[in-house]
Design a protein around this nucleic acid. Structure first.
Lengths: 255, 255
DNA sequence: CGACTTACGAATGGATACAATATGGCGAGA
DNA sequence: TCTCGCCATATTGTATCCATTCGTAAGTCG
């Protein structure tokens, strides 16, 4: 079959994947080479057309190429992807399960809208989850986990635009979650970012001049607390960290 | 996650989905009449065939009619439902998105397995979330919310078997989550129950003689704290409530 | 002149047909 | 007897086709 392009293999987020080994920070093949170690053989990434369509449509949505609220015509997508409508529909259905698109019978699929109030709802979930996650991470993190966390901070410092900054920041939080050893926590937390479509709302946030530097500083403090096994401190720092983001958005909502 | 649209119906509540009207005869009788009857599947005879197929397959999995790990043959399901494979596939893909079934390309769909360690991973998420949820509920609950919470406790007391008890107990926790006013919290929490396939593992838990009564008593105490606006107390009681469940399963895991 | 009706076109939902892949049995050879 | 390789069959994956519904806009009546 048309194996046109190398695909992004295991989805980072979404669904409830059973195993988490091979933790991959982002879809960049670069970086961590020998970390796998455990099993020399990795299962083959089967490239079904559905999977490819899923990846591509997802990327279109996440990069903002298709705006929130916009219609996702099945024929149009199928033609552009060079496939038939059937796999497109299944890919869309899968995206709907993740909340990236909405579906109404006989009305087709649309890119999910997201407003400030929804961002705040998600942040509230993070505020409930992440302090405890940080505590667990401090109690359980292995050396590999700590290295992975540091790597995301390094990426954050190297980031050159809002999108990279956002991705690295998100991956920091997911790396902390991974340190709990509970893959379901990672999946649940990752779901809170899924709907931040297009990273556009975030662009406004990161536009605030001092934000990025402050974010990184807070991340470093949290990482240090985790590395030092200081569960109470990590919990408290993470709570303040997420709460400040929530406050920031709340202020924006009023304006 | 769950947004409106009929593709994402309520499905959080205990009972069966509401009966749908609009009986529109399918234009294809497709006579393999006597072949069915193996499973309690009734042919679908309404619009939105995917949704209905989803409901029925989901019910089969949740009630344990199809055991975890068992294969979900597309043709078999399609024939028993009296529809074609296309909507069946889409329903299965949607169930895969929720983690109820697993999908491997060219290998078909299977009912997801779940073991004690997975139940514990889910409980750990609940342990992170629910204390804070209880606090928020105490701060925000309206009279309607309180009534809904009480209703689930009443159902719990009326329950006559393990399945009813389990459903009512789950609905208590979801009703508390609903009192936070954040629907995403409800969805996130609900996802933690989704994979408790067949309520079978739970049957063993509820088999413990004093369990049900103790559960109800704890629920009542939590509800009282929420109704009284005692956020600290509600949080603490909920933490102990969930923690005891986690301890219980941990003990089981050792045995 | 405006609101309602009604046809037409386009796109979705579902069914069927075809292609590709895996599963299981059988036989040959070590 | 066990293992490997091959073939038949069953099942999944994808494409194509038909029926139905929705959106739109022209057309008609008040």
């Amino acid at each position: 079959m048309a194996r046109d392009s190398d695909i992004t293999p295991p989805r980072l987020v979404g669904g409830h994947p059973p195993a988490d080994a091979a933790a991959k920070p982002t879809r960049r093949p670069a970086g961590l080479a020998g970390a796998a170690a455990a099993r020399p053989l990795r299962p083959i990434e089967s490239s079904s057309v559905v999977g490819l369509a899923y990846e591509q449509i997802r990327e279109l949505i996440l990069t903002g190429a298709i705006a929130p609220g916009e219609r996702l015509g099945q024929v149009e997508l199928a033609e552009q992807l060079g496939i038939s409508r059937t796999p497109v529909r299944e890919a869309l259905r899968r995206l709907a399960g993740e909340g990236l698109v909405t579906a109404r019978t006989n009305h087709g699929f649309r890119v999910a809208e997201i407003g400030i109030e929804e961002v705040m709802r998600r942040l509230e979930i993070r505020l409930l989850l992440e302090p405890g996650v940080a505590r667990l991470a401090a109690e359980r993190a292995t050396a590999d986990h700590l290295a992975a966390i540091d790597a995301t901070i390094a990426r954050e410092e190297r980031a050159r635009d809002a999108a990279e900054t956002h991705d690295a920041s998100r991956d920091f939080h997911l790396a902390v979650a991974r340190a709990t050893g509970n893959p379901d926590i990672v999946a649940t937390l990752a779901a809170q970012w899924i709907v931040e479509i297009g990273r556009r709302l975030l662009a406004r946030r990161t536009a605030r001049p001092d934000w990025q530097g402050r974010d990184i500083a807070e991340h470093k403090a949290i990482a240090a607390a985790i590395a030092g096994g200081q569960g109470d401190l990590a919990e408290q720092l993470m709570r303040e960290h997420v709460a400040s983001a929530l406050d920031h958005w709340a202020a924006k909502a009023d304006a």
